[in-house]
Design a protein around this nucleic acid. Structure first.
Lengths: 187, 187
DNA sequence: CAATTTAAGTATCGACTCGATACAATGTTT
DNA sequence: AAACATTGTATCGAGTCGATACTTAAATTG
């Protein structure tokens, strides 16, 4: 009865193993791809080493090294944070954006599409559920879209400029930030 | 339209990343778990470094090191192969079997089960399709069950002892070997 | 408000991963 | 018998990863 679940877990492992070794063909390592990808999708409150650490379930030391390696390769830039002088803002450079156009994850997405035909939505829903459970079981953070957060306060169309607001950080939110994923997001 | 496929690929990546870091809590590294797990499921023609290399999509050198590390830790034993003097048979020891009882993949299986309720079969089927595509696209080997192979020749119940036979390797097959996965398996 | 505690980031260590290369020994072809 | 291919190992360099120690800055507490 639990056979299917174990088989599914084993398949998940093998798919990730094979994808991982494929990712290694290039000048970026798997962990570096993960960080670059994350930074491209994260809002401005989340583009720092600590948020990356929470996202990856890793440790500060490891993430620090990975970010330094990415900076050395020219794909990200680090600048001291204004909000918190202990912290560092990590931004994807133009070179990094170009690199992401050849993200190996796109190849995996192609496999998913050709394997599942026109129903990749089911796969997405299924994997989202598994991830949610995994995160909940390990005290991790969901990193959902800012717009779907409990602290997200949309403002009426009467105000121009920065229409939305975060009730937790007490900061205004651009449309871009609202669409991106956030460390602090709570459903 | 391709959004769901990309999202699914990203979820696959994140699930594997988080699972991976969890696996590291113990005296075995992710690659070592993969090898130990594989050896426990592989038939006798597949319990050698070269088969492991094909399974993981890795290289001989890397696998060699991982197997040596596992031997040092006492979870596998290496003996020269009779069939091919260049080759080495790698067997899981009793200690290795005990270790596998605490396989972290069982925890992932638990997440899959609790996330998907009583329909983990759909997840299994879906992931099997994705893996098949991934393997086909990269010239890898499927590592299916020996019994489902093109070269598998079941013998009638009249003969006792070794009832089945492999037409490729011209070797008799026990029930255990027939149920296990094989490097040479072809659908 | 000063003292203590907590948090963010970095540096370093040791074991491991991983591709690449080189090499020895054995199999396979020709 | 000679040329070629395959299996496994050793070694190198860059990276990963948890652990530990340390610095600086923020948050708590008295």
């Amino acid at each position: 009865m639990t056979d299917d679940a174990i088989a599914a877990a084993a398949l998940l492992e093998r798919i990730s193993q094979l994808t991982r070794t494929e990712e290694q063909n290039g000048d970026l390592y798997p962990a570096q791809w993960t960080v670059l990808r994350f930074l491209a999708r994260a809002n401005r409150f989340s583009r720092n080493p600590m948020a990356i650490t929470h996202y990856m379930g890793s440790t500060r030391g490891t993430v620090s090294q990975t970010v330094i390696a990415l900076e050395r390769k020219g794909y990200v830039a680090r600048t001291p944070s204004m909000r918190d002088k202990r912290s560092v803002d990590v931004e994807v450079t133009e070179s990094g954006v170009e690199k992401l156009a050849a993200d190996p994850i796109l190849k995996l997405a192609e496999e998913v599409r050709s394997a599942l035909g026109e129903q990749p939505k089911q796969a997405r829903t299924m994997l989202e559920k598994i991830l949610a459970n995994l995160v909940a079981a390990n005290g991790g953070r969901p990193f959902g879209q800012c717009r779907t957060c409990r602290h997200f306060k949309p403002q009426s169309g009467t105000t121009k400029g920065q229409p939305h607001h975060c009730g937790l950080l007490e900061e205004d939110l651009s449309e871009t930030d609202s669409d991106a994923i956030c460390v602090e997001q709570v459903a």
